[in-house]
Every structure is written in C-alpha cells, then in structure tokens.
Amino acid sequence: MKFAIVVFPGSNCDRDCFYAARDVIGQEAEFVWHTHRDLSGFDCVILPGGFSYGDYLRSGAIARFAPVMTEVERFARAGGPVLGICNGFQILLEAGLLPGAMLRNRDLQFRCEETFIRVETSRTPFTGLCREGQVLKVPIAHGEGNYFIDEAGLKDLEANRQIVFRYTDASGRVTPESNPNGSVSNIAGICNRQGNVVGLMPHPERSCEGMLGSADGRVIFESVVADLAGRGVARAANALMDRQTIHQVEKAAGGASGCR
C-alpha cells in the first residue's frame, strides 16, 4: 500500500512519518507538497506534525486552506483513512474534518515528554490491531494541545465512540496528573463519526523502534496496513459479486445486454 505524507511549509515530522511508513513497516510512501491537487493512487493520507505556516493566527488555521486540503477532504469523505498527527490533528480540527479545537496548554509550557495513552476504541483503521484498553508509550511535543469541545460535543463524542486515545498513567488509569496539557476528559486523540479520520497529539512515528525508547507507535501504522488489506479482500469479493450479477442480468436478458 502507498502512504501520502503531506508536506506544508513548516512541517517538520514529515520525514519521520516517511521513515516509519517505508523503512519501519516496509510500505510505499511519497511526499505530497501542499500545492498538489491529486491524491489518486494513495491508500492512506498522513498529515504530519510541525508548525505549518509558522502556526500564525492559530495552529493549522492557514494550512487548512492549502490546495491539497480540498483533495484530503474528498479522500476522507470517500472513506479513505486519514491520520493527523500533532499539527496534522490541529489542521483536521481547523478544516472541520474533526470536531473541537485546540487551546494553549493549561500551564502555557511547550511539553516535550513521554506520555501514556490508552486505546479507547479499535474501530478505526489506525487502531484495528490494538486491544481496547491497551496502553501505548508515545511522546508528545506541543504547546497547543489542550483539546477543547463543549459539553454537548463531548457527549456526542462519547455516544458515537469517537474518543480514540486518552492520556493515562502507565497502568492505564485516567488521572489529572497524567493529563499533560489540560485536554477535556484527558483526550489525546479522536476520530470522525465514520472512524476513518483520526487525529492525535502524540507522535507514533517517533516511537516506532526500540532504540527510540518505545516501539508502541508502530501498531498505528501496522493497523492501517492490515485494515486496507482487509478492505482489499472485501473489494475483490464485491467485484466478483458484481461480475456474477452482470452475468445473471445478461443471461436473463438473453445475452443481449451488451447491445445498446
């Protein structure tokens, strides 16, 4: 399968994502510049971390209007898997592909440290290989990761199983101390209703190999590969059924359906 790694002016985790996709899990990957308007041939889109457009105005506010984002939206609406990491998550929020918004961290500090996140749902293409309740050690590095959504929005997220990751302690308990930035309900990552668009503040691409301190992030990338392989099987089955249906229709029509 082939990953599109979108590059905005100011992205700085694009190469890490590329490395995770190609060198760590052995898939194809290609950089896609923010002015491109074509995502055909790609199976998964990653919006990497960084400081697109210098984070001016608000993080992600300007990047969301980049030409490539029209295509990312189209890709997402067609059900394609989209992963926004850190600044990529902020861009998805600004674009309205995910609900809520980011505020400055509660303590105003840029937090760069290891965190533990608990997988709340395995229904997304990026968590399919995870066990619900599984705790991953994945680092964060952000100044604006204080996830905000109003009460009604939070209820919606919970009712639709859109909370994908929560900050916890090492044993998976949600505690105030394990919340690094003040996010509502310790939220570290969410998905859209369909589940195919996922955003998270922690960096799985920075925790794909043991020598980086943790290889826990790898499962995020492996999950989408497994998910797409599964979809491929489903697609092939559908195509086969379509062919059989056409064949039956042709037979019913006395083999004349080819003539128009």
């Binding site: 608000r58 506010a61 209007f65 929020l93 609900p99 809520g100 918004a101 905000f148 959504i149």
Partner: peptide, 8 residues
C-alpha cells in the same frame, strides 16, 4: 472563515 475559530 479564517480570522476566528467559532468553536472557541
């Protein structure tokens, strides 16, 4: 559209 984020 751009200068403010109506969510916050």
């Amino acid at each position: 559209r751009l200068l403010s984020n109506p969510v916050i």
